[in-house]
Design a protein around this nucleic acid. Structure first.
Lengths: 217, 217
DNA sequence: TAGATTGTTAATCGATTAACAATC
DNA sequence: TAGATTGTTAATCGATTAACAATC
């Protein structure tokens, strides 16, 4: 077992699939699982599975595999999914509403502690049981609630402003859905996720397929 | 200029940012733009910008840069963002509703032609002006509407079933939001996007920061 | 011509895959 | 012991960055 330094990003993203599956196996009462089984079930190659767990600080036993609940705990602890962390969401449009209502917060150890918007028609309403506050209250609420992470679901032109507000309030972790690169200090982590990526990629892939078929004719 | 073969995936994802910016510049009447300017505005290094455009089959002129509207057209044409393509969405939960209402379809050349669900309470209602059909009508509607791409926004346990339905109906491009690896034939393109990725990555990043600070003390 | 900027090849870096030794 | 499976290093592959020649 190596001392765990830094998980490759690609590896971190695969952890969700492993964890999802391990929790199912745990519920079914299965005690151990091999890299080959995990690979077959997740569609990830067995070698990659082992390499991922190696980075994690592996725990498997030759001939037996990995102890299911122990491995699940290890993943949760390395990714820190069980430490309570408060997050806020800025911009309650359709996407914001969908995120607010989803179960991802709990699964990653977050609590959606506050929602902000600037639209008077939305302020004061509730989403997923959280009252929507006026963006002018941002600093006070972030301090009061001990909010450490922020989610930006405002339109692209407003995203930088939302980011500045977060940085100004001491938030060091931002999840940005606007197709815009935020300008933030070096010590702030920004995770970008554009909803359009999937469609754009599919559009390009569908075109390539078409080209290939033409060439094949 | 090289003959354009296959754009690296990472490059494809950056195209959205370039395009977004180029369209703004176009609206402002700016004629040309250098890789340095584009880089500064998008937060991407100028070298990467040039390398991306090189892959695209570049068009720039030394000392002047790239012609704004020509470059925008090139991106749209290489990614095939202007060819009309019909898509369907299976599973109208909060995320499905947010996607349906978003502008990503038009931006990537898609039309959301049909929405399916299995919940009787939802069937017959509308989302983003599209009537929700019973999933039992899937095959017929896909043929009738000429649907080429499918979006899966059902809960994880139902995702494979939705995927099978799509593959069975001849769909070759799938955008899957369930944290599950779909089993599909080789000629079907699957683009996975889990909503949890952002939070999981942030959780891990926030922990690393904390560790770093401790070590620094 | 000199200077700025692109186009393109080469070097570096990181992630994936292959190989195989260690171990139960 | 033999066989299966993990742990770990090395090789490969792809993407990023650096270097610099070409060109306006």
């Amino acid at each position: 077992m190596q001392e765990h330094k830094k998980l490759p990003r690609a590896s971190v993203l695969r952890m969700e699939l492993y964890l999802e599956l391990l929790e199912q196996l745990e519920a079914n009462g299965q005690q151990s699982v091999t890299s080959a089984e995990l690979g077959a079930a997740t569609g990830i190659s067995a070698v990659k599975v082992r390499q991922d767990f190696f980075h994690l600080g592996s725990e498997g036993k030759p001939k037996i595999g990995y102890e299911v609940s122990q491995l699940a705990s290890l993943i949760r602890s390395v990714l820190d999914l069980e430490t309570p962390k408060n997050a806020c969401l800025v911009g309650l449009g359709n996407l914001g509403r969908a995120l607010a209502a989803s179960d991802i917060w709990a699964r990653a150890g977050f609590r959606l502690a506050a929602i902000f918007d600037r639209d008077q028609k939305i302020i004061g309403t509730e989403a997923a049981g959280v009252r929507v506050r006026n963006i002018t209250e941002f600093f006070g609420v972030v301090k009061a609630e001990g909010i450490a992470a922020g989610v930006i679901t405002v339109p692209a032109p407003d995203a930088q402003e939302a980011g500045d507000l977060m940085v100004g309030a001491g938030i060091r972790a931002i999840w940005n859905f606007a197709p815009v690169t935020l300008r933030v200090p070096d010590d702030v982590v920004v995770e970008n996720q554009s909803l359009a990526w999937g469609l754009i990629t599919l559009s390009y892939a569908m075109k390539s397929d078409k080209d290939k078929n033409h060439t094949a004719l």
